[in-house]
């Protein structure tokens, strides 16, 4: 895999919207050409060359391209939007809307990630080694079709409204998530350590949520249906006869 390193020099105060940072935009280009690629900042556009010190090699096709971003990218939004292959490695924190509509490939965040990671993603893999924000794997505003495929793994804790409207794919959170996990969920799978305020599966009508913490207090709008493989099984949301499945470790 060919590695291209983007080292952050200085980010403007108004932040960056950088949906152009993804492997398929960098392949078959020289460093000079990459430096001329534009990103949005404030009401204007600036070039990648003015923000990053760029070094390394580019590949011939996207699946062989790896992008490494060094430094604090928490003011950069929309990295890897709709990316269709290759790999992005972020050495520090990252801003909102990482890997939105992602199709395939891999994104690794070594620091913390912000809100809206992998919203409406179709495939690929996102790994966050720190904490993640709200609305992970959920739908974008204006639709309630959330994540459709792919995988998200968070080592730390996550924010609220994870997997809103999720229809497929898999989310794993090793730590605790804030309330409202899997609202309007219709498919896919969420595995989470624990959920705050035991608000989970609001209007859930399919899919599966597993909770590892034995002390989790199952909300009253889930009905017990049995047990299997060391997990108690519940069905809900009962306030409208939803058919979601909630598993809690015994």
């Amino acid at each position: 895999m060919m590695e291209l390193v983007l080292e952050i020099k200085k980010i403007p105060k108004t932040g960056l919207e950088a949906e152009t940072i993804k492997p398929e935009n960098f392949v078959n280009k020289s460093i000079k050409e990459i430096e001329k690629i534009e990103v949005c900042s404030g009401n204007g556009k600036i070039t990648l060359g003015s923000i990053f010190k760029i070094s390394g090699k580019t590949a011939k096709n996207p699946s062989e391209q790896k992008i490494v971003i060094v430094g604090d990218a928490s003011k950069i939004k929309r990295i890897g939007e709709a990316m269709s292959g290759g790999e992005i490695l972020l050495k520090g924190d990252v801003g909102p809307r990482l890997g939105e509509f992602m199709v395939s490939g891999k994104i690794i965040v070594e620091g913390n990630a912000d809100n809206w990671i992998g919203t409406s993603m179709n495939g690929g893999e996102i790994i966050v080694k720190g904490n993640a924000g709200d609305y992970m794997g959920s739908s974008i505003r204006g639709t309630n079709r959330g994540m459709r495929g792919g995988k998200i793994l968070v080592d730390g804790n996550a924010g609220g409204e994870i997997g809103y409207g999720m229809v497929g794919g898999e989310i794993t959170i090793n730590g605790t998530a804030d309330s409202f996990v899997g609202s309007y969920m219709r498919g896919g799978k969420i595995v989470v350590g624990n959920v705050l305020m035991n608000r989970i599966g609001f209007s859930m009508n399919g899919g599966e949520i597993s909770i590892i913490d034995k002390t989790f207090n199952v909300p009253f709008y889930f009905r017990k249906i049995g047990e299997e493989g060391g997990f108690m099984q519940y069905s809900g949301d009962q306030s409208f006869d939803g058919k979601g499945l909630l598993k809690v470790q015994k």
Binding site: K13, T14, G15, E17, C40, K77, P96, W116, Y135, R141
Partner: peptide, 26 residues
Amino acid sequence: DFFRGYPCYNPGETSVIDILARGEVD
């Protein structure tokens, strides 16, 4: 938010408290 010339809408990202807390306006 009109920063791209056309309207963008995503409360939580383009809402006044979030945009000020991130320091994205000047």
